[in-house]
Amino acid sequence: MLISLGLLLLCQLLGEALVHALGVPLPGPVIGMALLLVLLLMRDQLTPVLPHEVGDGTLEKTSTGLLANLSLMFIPAGVGVVQRLDLVVSHGPAILVALIFSTAIALLAGVAVFRLLARLVGEAT
């Protein structure tokens, strides 16, 4: 459990370090995710040098546990937003209308193209 958490933090740290060192405008945690994915893909080759916990399902359990509570982690930022709603309210309902419609349009565009191309590659369900 502790090693798994440490490994997640280490990947994030390396991701942040890479982003800052290269000066690229990318999110460090996303790079960290890519690094962990690479590690998982190479896990079988690396088994002798990796801690036991990485291979016995603990890393999976820790990660799944974190992701099951992803909602919780947005609450502190969300509470901050409630206090700055004045920024949006001062512009009336126009922004809310734009947000609702653009989100619906983006969702529909996304699934439409996904389904179309899935059919093309023979992956439609």
């Binding site: 958490l5 997640l8 990947c11 945690p29 995710m33 962990l36 890393l59 974190l66 982690m73």
Partner: peptide, 24 residues
């Protein structure tokens, strides 16, 4: 409030990294 809530907020980073697990 955030002095307490930051511990939860902080977990967003590791949770993003953890997305590699279901992806894998």
């Amino acid at each position: 409030y955030f002095e307490g809530a930051q511990f939860v907020h902080f977990m967003l980073g590791p949770a993003t990294v953890a997305l590699a697990v279901p992806l894998y």
